[in-house]
Design a protein around this nucleic acid. Structure first.
Lengths: 172, 172
DNA sequence: CTTGGAATGTCAACAACGCTGACTTAAAGT
DNA sequence: ACTTTAAGTCAGCGTTGTTGACATTCCAAG
């Protein structure tokens, strides 16, 4: 470890962004930024008595209406029991509809109700507003770099989910 | 909401990165990337029976040796009780040393022990390795953009902590 | 010297949200 | 018929966040 100490002089400035200190700052930036990233939704969720897990479920159901439980499990990377607890309350509260599959009747297909869509829109707009402000402040090219680094940071399985998601509505 | 639908044609390509769809993808990229970001430390922590809260404490104590509890509370953004539970186990296990303040004896100054430093190094190197790989893959300019967007995404208070931290060892 | 407040620590209780393990039901595949 | 798959359920547990109440220690102001 510590093979890139500042001043080690591997190749001077060209690799300055790979010094331990620069990497550390990237790590801390991720930590602080993620807190900002979740702060607005957290405040909204609190009003309704929900948590982040509800947000994630609502987000990805809204993103892929009609998705089944197994697919959602793969995306979220949690256990069936954990997701089920969240899903049950959302269904009971009338935010999510669960419909038995047509081809395969074992499957449940998940949809947002009108109220579910309303919550999704409220959460999404808050999060997009912050993202929009950050993008505006950082600029077009910074955003491209931001996205490139994030994609490279994902685990391959998660990146697969991410890309599968993207190909639905966008080609970016 | 939805004021920037793709195809709305506000100004064509120049603002394409501010469409709702692009913002949504940024949001999802943050979600998936953050899981990758924490995956390696999580595996290491499990070996020792610790969690992410322990990681965060060890990280920031290692970063600012001699910091007091109040400062750490500000950085971490949790309650005294929550931090104390984590800190207590780290002190009991001999990873963190708590020394009574010299000027103000109410304060406790926190330091990593040798074993604490070893754990910090193990966690940090794992996380830096992933960050290094992502940085290499994305390239120098992408990293600059990545950092710019992250900083713009932080809450002002958190950004203050971030910058206060940075000025200790680095001028980036 | 006394008192107020700040810094710290501790106890209790609770909630969100992960986890494992065991089990059921229903439907599909073979 | 038998096995596998999808989903749901129950029970229990661990980490990490929360509030509220309270004790201790110590600095500093009156």
């Amino acid at each position: 470890m510590a093979e890139n100490k500042a001043g080690g002089g591997i190749s001077g400035e060209a690799l300055l962004f790979l010094t331990d200190e620069q990497l550390r700052k990237g790590i801390e930036a991720m930590f602080f930024a993620y807190r900002g990233f979740t702060a607005d939704p957290d405040r909204i969720l609190e009003k309704y008595g929900y948590g982040r897990a509800h947000h994630r479920a609502v987000h990805f159901i809204g993103r892929s209406p009609g998705t089944n439980v197994n697919n959602l499990l793969g995306i979220l990377g949690v256990t069936k029991q954990s997701l089920n607890r969240v899903l049950r309350t959302l269904i009971e509260d009338g935010l999510v509809e669960s419909r038995v599959g047509v081809q395969d009747k074992r499957e449940r297909h998940l949809y947002l109700s009108e109220r579910g869509n309303a919550l999704e829109a409220e959460l999404s707009e808050a999060q997009r507003a912050r993202m929009r402000a950050a993008y505006r402040e950082a600029g077009h090219e910074a955003v491209a770099g931001f996205r490139r680094v994030l994609e490279a940071m994902m685990d391959p399985d998660q990146a697969a989910h991410f890309h599968a998601m993207s190909s639905k509505e966008d080609k970016g």
